[in-house]
Design a protein around this nucleic acid. Structure first.
Lengths: 121, 121
DNA sequence: GATCTTAGTTCCCTTTGGGTACTACGATGG
DNA sequence: CCATCGTAGTACCCAAAGGGAACTAAGATC
């Protein structure tokens, strides 16, 4: 496996290949954080908004809807009095977490090698 | 200058932590594709534009500049007559390729599990 | 001197991102 | 009875980023 392109017909480097769209969905700050935030079990909208520090409700909603559309997460509504909505990973979403977790962890582990970001000269 | 409020305890879930900015840089379609396109050696601007099917020169320039600023790639200008510019990974960029390659490969390997993207019902 | 090539830049428009305010719902409580 | 609370969003508006097409520069080549 010297290349990352599928030996059959799929290739992220082909703009018209659906896996390009998939990459666009996953290679996204909020997607990566949202899926990671669900790794430890279901979470509610408010909990996600708090965990994904800095996300606006609008963008969080859009992100979650996109992930739900693609079957990476499930959205469950409990019509209790203060409305209660739970998001959780599907099997597919759990699988997708592995490479995203690796990316997040790489960022944390290597941030010191980025002087321009850490403020050092 | 220093927006780092999470000194030493780095966390991508903290909006003010520099590694959040790093995640934003890496968790991006064009960054992931551009770095991957350089894995096999230096490439010229035109070669990258061709390889990253669908990218506009403006966005490619912006992407490469950002990666260069952060020290992930080097830009070398050969002032020959039809101008010649080569981009190549730095050691840091090569290291960053691993998690990004995993993400690209996951997208290719699992695209069939996304009926909404592949057009299947 | 017209044209080719390379590596962009410029213009303009659309899409996305983002902040703040607001809604619906009924329970709670004064 | 009306005010307030908490949850999960939506509505509105503006700024930033994405994206397409055309254009630029510089010298070589025809």
């Amino acid at each position: 496996m010297t290349t990352d392109s599928c030996s059959r017909q799929h290739d992220v480097y082909d703009a018209s290949c659906p896996c390009r769209q998939l990459l666009d969905l996953l290679a996204n700050k909020w997607s990566a954080l949202a899926l990671g935030a669900l790794e430890d079990g279901p979470r509610r909208f408010g909990a996600l908004r708090d965990r994904l520090d800095g996300v606006s409700p609008k963008v969080l909603t859009a992100t979650l809807r996109r992930l739900e559309e693609q079957g990476l997460i499930d959205r469950t509504v409990y019509p209790s009095v203060p409305l209660h909505v739970e998001y959780q990973l599907t099997a597919l979403g759990r699988d997708a977490c592995a490479p995203l977790a690796a990316l997040r962890q790489w960022a944390v582990a290597n941030i010191d090698r980025f002087p321009a970001l850490t403020g050092a000269a």
